[in-house]
Nucleic acid binder design. Structure first.
Length: 632
RNA sequence: GCGCUCGUAGCUCAGCGGAUAGAGCACCAGCUUGCGGAGCUGGGGGUCGGAGGUUCGAAUCCUCUCGAGCGCGCCA
């Protein structure tokens, strides 16, 4: 916010200097960046404009810096000093009174302080969690749940329209779901579950709830047991503060005939066919194509279970290699059943309807799915090939391309479609979480088939944190800690989740450090009210202590952090920001006494600063899905 | 073999083109006749895995290399 203001000042100053003839016209094109210096001795904020621009301006950086410093330095309302340092840095020391003025605008905006207005509003569908309905939400999926939900909050705060979606993998043809149903059925009939079946206690629980279906058809049991599982997942996720606007059933696409219809569409677009070969692309290091081969279709695979008993027919191939995938994918099996990827085509088309007129899809996937990015991109490219603008490349087909494409025109259309897909679909992969106990990794899947469920993690932590709390308080405490821990680390790197630290005494716990700051602010404000003191913006100019200025600058950063996070999806930045903001407050609190009845003007200004901090803290915690307690 | 991700303080991790690389934990030394000490202040501790390159400037970008994790089904 303060940064935005300074960037505007720079733009104005540069325009003045151009019309005065001190800077060439090209100065307008130089990118302007204002940042906080790492070293506080270098001032409150700084810009590298002179160094970045020196080349295009044809001037040496220090000369540019001097001209700019002269122009800006005259604005004594804003700047206490403008210094040139090093190779051409421009270091700004801001006038504390000017900085303090921003407290008023935070208070004016209140909760909307964290709401941004983007240059362009995107309509984004975010799909996350989406695990099979054959078990509880695990602690592994917990990371995706925390990440996806926080990402949605941030995108919304950044001003975009967001649709939260869960894709239920409930295709009746799914091997895994059938196996799950068979396991439940076996338990219902008092038989042993199949060798490769599901053996956890939760399977027995599902069976217990379905006593009335004893002796029923497998299909009936399959439907009922997956519904039970979905309900359990939904409840667990709600406790974890994860909610979806849509729970989308894969099977519903089959039932509506959408999958079949879309497959027909692909065939008529000549991106899917029944020719009996699979194309494979082998790449050498650096992604250069080493070879493209058409493999004759192998018919020797005997592992297939021919569940439908419909006998053999031609395999239907999606020619995904035309869109950068490393091999063609099967849409319809030899036995006539459609594959998972076939529903994916229909599904990705459908997703653009939520929100209406969707402009972007984000899919959050687990660490075992990064091989899936190329496939998904190809799916979207194939589906929307008519929407995309072909690339303009007149060069003839290479030797490799001749195997993939019929002619130059087709290649250019496919390349265009691939670019379109990359533009409209973003896949975010989160990496694995290792849960550490006694310094050793704790198994997520136990030998007896039991799974470490997210809800158990939440309850364990809650029990430890609030042994005397209500059920509701325990769930909240557990969820707060778990969410913050998941979100502290960059989702794209493997992390260790220290179960002892999370469940142990609270004083080592970063979550509580932040929540404590919020509770402390609330307490200070309460205390002030008891002495007849209240926040006011009438004397903000009194906030000139270094700790006060630092805190205000930190509060002002929130909007920048949100904007940045909405564009690079690195939600962990906000968890770190929350810690920094809390630290700035604690440090301020320690030095600057807020409530001083003998000095009501300073008190009112500091209370205003407390209010502004509370607003910012409350906002970040809200984005992270962590509660901001008034007392603890 | 190919692809993705990661190697930063004793440990867990930030930083991802800027000036002397940061925080928490652990360790050491301090702060309270006052608003919540679940707090604050200070200190020690690093050839940012290694080697080249790009440029005014690299932990950050590129190439190679070593090491770790994961992924490459007519499973989902």
């Amino acid at each position: 916010m303060i940064r935005e203001a300074l960037e505007k000042k720079l733009v104005t100053a540069i325009a003045e200097l151009i019309s005065a003839g001190s800077l060439p016209e090209t100065a307008r094109t130089v990118r302007i960046e204002v940042d906080a210096p790492k070293n506080p001795d270098h001032g409150d904020l700084m810009t590298n404009f002179a160094m970045v621009g020196s080349k295009t301006l044809g001037m040496n950086p220090r000369a540019v810096a001097e001209i700019l410093a002269g122009e800006l330095g005259s604005d004594t309302e804003v700047f206490a000093s403008v210094e040139i340092a090093g190779p051409g840095f421009l270091n700004f020391r801001l006038n504390p009174a000017w900085v303090a003025g921003f407290v008023a605008s935070v208070l004016e905006r209140g909760v909307s302080y964290s709401h941004l207005t983007p240059d362009q509003v995107e309509k984004i569908n975010v799909e996350f969690v989406s695990v099979n309905p054959n078990g509880p939400i695990t602690i592994g999926s917990g990371r995706g749940a925390a990440y996806g939900s926080a990402l949605c909050n941030v995108l919304e705060a950044a001003g975009h329209e967001v649709h939260r979606e869960y894709y239920i993998n409930d295709g009746v043809n799914s091997e895994q779901m059938r196996l799950f149903a068979e396991s439940v059925k076996a338990l219902l009939n008092g038989q042993a579950v199949p060798d490769n079946g599901y053996k956890g206690d939760y399977v027995q629980e599902v069976a217990n709830g379905l006593e009335h279906l004893k002796g029923a058809e497998l299909a009936t049991i399959q439907k009922a047991s997956q519904d039970a599982m979905i309900e359990a997942q939904r409840t667990a996720l709600e406790h974890f503060r994860v909610n979806f606007a849509t729970w989308f059933s894969e099977q519903s696409l089959h039932d509506a005939g959408e999958v079949a219809r879309v497959i027909g569409e692909l065939e008529s677009k000549h991106v899917a066919d029944e020719s009996p070969f699979r194309t494979k692309i082998e790449t050498a290091k650096g992604g250069v194509i080493k070879s493209v081969t058409k493999e004759d279709q192998a018919v020797t695979n005997t592992d297939d279970e021919d569940a439908s008993g419909e006998g053999e027919q031609a395999t239907l191939w999606l020619r995904s290699t035309k869109f950068g995938d490393d091999q063609d994918r099967v849409l319809r099996r030899r036995d006539g059943r459609l594959t998972y990827i076939a529903s994916d085509v229909a599904y990705h088309k459908d997703k653009f309807n939520r929100p209406a007129g969707g402009t972007k899809l984000i899919t959050v996937l687990g660490p075992d799915h990064h091989g899936y990015i190329g496939r998904l991109t190809a799916v979207v490219a194939a589906m929307f090939i008519d929407q995309a603008t072909p690339v303009d490349d007149p060069t003839p087909l290479t030797e490799h391309e001749e195997i993939l494409f019929g002619n130059v025109e087709e290649r250019n259309r496919c390349r265009g479609a691939q670019a379109w897909a990359k533009d409209h679909l973003t896949v975010q992969i989160f990496q694995i979480v290792r849960f550490m106990k006694d310094g050793k990794p704790a198994p997520m899947r136990k030998r007896d088939g039991n799974i470490y469920a997210l809800i158990d993690l939440i309850k364990e932590i809650g029990e430890e944190m609030r042994p005397n709390g209500t059920e509701e308080e325990k769930l909240q405490a557990g969820s707060d800690v778990a969410r913050f821990f998941y979100l502290m680390r960059n989702h794209d790197t493997a992390m260790d989740f220290d179960l002892e630290l999370a469940t142990k005494q609270s004083d080592e716990n970063p979550v509580f450090y932040v929540q404590y700051a919020h509770a402390r602010i609330c307490s200070v404000i309460r205390k002030g009210a008891e002495s007849g003191l209240a926040a006011s913006t009438a004397h903000l100019g009194l906030l000139d202590h270094a700790k006060e200025t630092t805190l205000i600058l930190k509060i002002a950063e929130l909007r920048d952090e949100i904007a940045q996070t909405a564009s690079d999806y690195a939600v962990n930045r906000l968890a770190n920001y929350a810690l920094e903001l809390a630290r700035s407050y604690h440090s301020f609190y320690d030095t600057c006494r807020v409530n001083q009845p003998e000095n009501p003007e300073l008190s009112s200004a500091r209370l205003a600063l407390c209010e502004a901090t509370r607003t910012a803290l409350h906002s970040v915690l809200g984005l992270l899905g962590v509660s901001a307690p008034q007392e603890m």
